[in-house]
Write a protein that binds this DNA or RNA. Sequence first.
DNA 1: AATGAATGAGCGTTCATTCAT
DNA 2: AATGAATGAACGCTCATTCAT
Lengths: 233, 233, 233, 233
Amino acid sequence: MARTSTARTEPRRRVRGGKPHKSQRKFEQRRQQIFSGALACFERKGYHETSINDIAEAAGISSGLIYQYFNDKRDLLFQVILEILEAYNRDVPKALVGIKDPITRFQAASIAYYRVIDHRISATLFAYRESKSLDPDQIKILKTKELQTNQMLVDCIQDCVNAGYFATPNAELASYWIVTTAHAWGLKNWRLRKIVSFEDYTRQTLNLLMNGMLTNLGRSHLMGHDLLDGRPL
Amino acid sequence: MARTSTARTEPRRRVRGGKPHKSQRKFEQRRQQIFSGALACFERKGYHETSINDIAEAAGISSGLIYQYFNDKRDLLFQVILEILEAYNRDVPKALVGIKDPITRFQAASIAYYRVIDHRISATLFAYRESKSLDPDQIKILKTKELQTNQMLVDCIQDCVNAGYFATPNAELASYWIVTTAHAWGLKNWRLRKIVSFEDYTRQTLNLLMNGMLTNLGRSHLMGHDLLDGRPL
Amino acid sequence: MARTSTARTEPRRRVRGGKPHKSQRKFEQRRQQIFSGALACFERKGYHETSINDIAEAAGISSGLIYQYFNDKRDLLFQVILEILEAYNRDVPKALVGIKDPITRFQAASIAYYRVIDHRISATLFAYRESKSLDPDQIKILKTKELQTNQMLVDCIQDCVNAGYFATPNAELASYWIVTTAHAWGLKNWRLRKIVSFEDYTRQTLNLLMNGMLTNLGRSHLMGHDLLDGRPL
Amino acid sequence: MARTSTARTEPRRRVRGGKPHKSQRKFEQRRQQIFSGALACFERKGYHETSINDIAEAAGISSGLIYQYFNDKRDLLFQVILEILEAYNRDVPKALVGIKDPITRFQAASIAYYRVIDHRISATLFAYRESKSLDPDQIKILKTKELQTNQMLVDCIQDCVNAGYFATPNAELASYWIVTTAHAWGLKNWRLRKIVSFEDYTRQTLNLLMNGMLTNLGRSHLMGHDLLDGRPL
DNA sequence: AATGAATGAGCGTTCATTCAT
DNA sequence: AATGAATGAACGCTCATTCAT
């Protein structure tokens, strides 16, 4: 009866030993439906103010059905936040495909990170706000996921350091400068968007950060193919 | 039942036209008691998970009494967050007293800002998380309050720009670099504290940001009295 | 959050560290009110078919209040059954006050036992039916309580055996003959009451059981003061 | 939605005028499957705690299919209890086949009754517990069924009385002594099995009861072929 | 000023039952 | 014949808020 506080991910159907669905397709579709409904509600009203019925309504289904796809409301919250973080994890590497030059890779990764935040500002805010409501095991998973994303930035920075382009004593700290300023675009968007455009914010902030990290070698290496020079980002 | 969406601040006693307190002193004391209890609970468990009874118990009073000092639970939340922001507003100016040099003022203000965050990390996290639960009017007030604090930084930066020490096209954006990296120390403290000390974080991050803003004039002016050079911050 | 499956008895108020009630009297009164309402509902409709709202209504209070006196519905069930068993425990000893003769004591105890069942037939049925719904710890407590009551009968029987009046190899088994025939009056009352009166049932059944246990000494000792001889029981 | 309070027994297929089954055999097989699953669940967890899905899973079929064999969950409960009572009805007569002597018949019937309870203790407990959940019409049917079984004992006793072996004013009451003590073996098994074996319980209890009923004629008639004398029951 | 008993709306969750496939 | 996805009413329980004391 008592649920141990493990970070359950599987929908109940599976858990309870039911057979797999006839149609995995239909199953995933429904899941997405609920996901979208839940995300929309959570973003708008927050986790606690959203009732299961709100979600059901937003998803166009009955409330009971949700429990065939998610263990409980908290599980749904977890899944939704996880999905947001995984989107980060998916988008950043995509931006690096085919890019060889270390500094360009760093710039591309950073811009991608800024962009993914910009595209999902309210989802990002929501993830910041509501993670606290999860149980410790789930939070640990989210943190791990976040560190994975950050690691991609850390790797880019370390490559620049190894190539002699960046001089920064702590690559992970440096990665947090990117992460932090990206998130800041979301967290303080209510004000920032009134004083700079997304492009300007990205350009100026990245320039500032790179300025502080570049060696002379890096600075001269960069000339001619700085991603931040070209007009459209 | 129906809540009008005014950002009520006054305790009910006043509102209802009751007589003034025999002892304003006693009144403030009680208020503080409730404040402290509420903040402690909110930080630990979050707003929604905290019940009025939790707060009453933490404050050592009865639950009913809370309603003589605050209109409702949300009002209490509002006051508590307001108090946190006001602490920022109080501490930063204190650090500037007697300092004349623009760059030193900027550094002192920034360090003060970092420090106030560091001293109240969980309160800061809490304010970030729970502001969403307030009603629009209350949120507007908080934003105004936040802009006031930021304005102090903006002013410092603008003074540096005017003196020819900083070259930065947008002083408010620059102030956000301070604000967001300071907040980041709180928001990502779970990870950052494992890779840098508060002092190192502050020193390195401020150095980075200044590096990108200083003019040559500023750079030479700074020599000899850079707050970030002396060992203890 | 997760409640461990201990057999809680105390009302929540006390448990949660609240201060004791101003008026213990009022508290007990309310508790009794809920008790009576719950027992009435449980007897009539069974535990599962009874909703908390049914009980609240029967008790003339609001549903929420129940949770200030009982931990949950199951706790209420437990308390109610416990109360029933304790009534057995109270009534049987009363019947023995001042009686010295072993056989008379045995008869008096048995009659008392039969009587207490007869007076609370539906409560007895209810206890039989619903104990299964309790958690193991609570069931253990009930079993202990039941054994305490039985022990009084065992003692009476053993005294008779020691005095040479009864010859029965197993006093506890013999006590169960009393207990089960008494319970049978409740369990099969729907039929038994159509073929014998309570008095006749008691008289005939006890006579039968004693017949099988009495020694010749016991039989002659009994003459002249057999409780089962006098007309009114 | 509105349930008419008839004691429906027939599976829906029949009711709705569907064609007869290709294979009555298959039909009965399925029915048994569901029966077994339901009984297993009901005994272990009780009626209310068992969900239709539990039963479906235990029976290895889908939940929907149950409704082609039973009207609703209550109907299934009814059938299962009915089946338990019918097992009593089947087993007791079997024990009497070929036996002529009245007292021996009585003994054989009684032992058979004790035995059938012993073999299905948890089913017996379950029937006691859950009958309350049925509707009045269904309960009436169960009572009738129970009286039928009892009647076999009554007949045996009456035969003994008619033959002058037993002196007991009320044969049905006497039959209840058997029934009651047999059921007691189930109801109080948690304790009784710790103080006597099934054989000892049966032997001692039956001896006790017979002692009280036998006439001198009966007593001398019994000599030499008392079923309770031989070692193995 | 202070208490805490009392309320009752509202929540998350379950599950018997239906029905399209 | 058989499935299991879908429904939605109903439950146990919580807690902000009120108010008699």
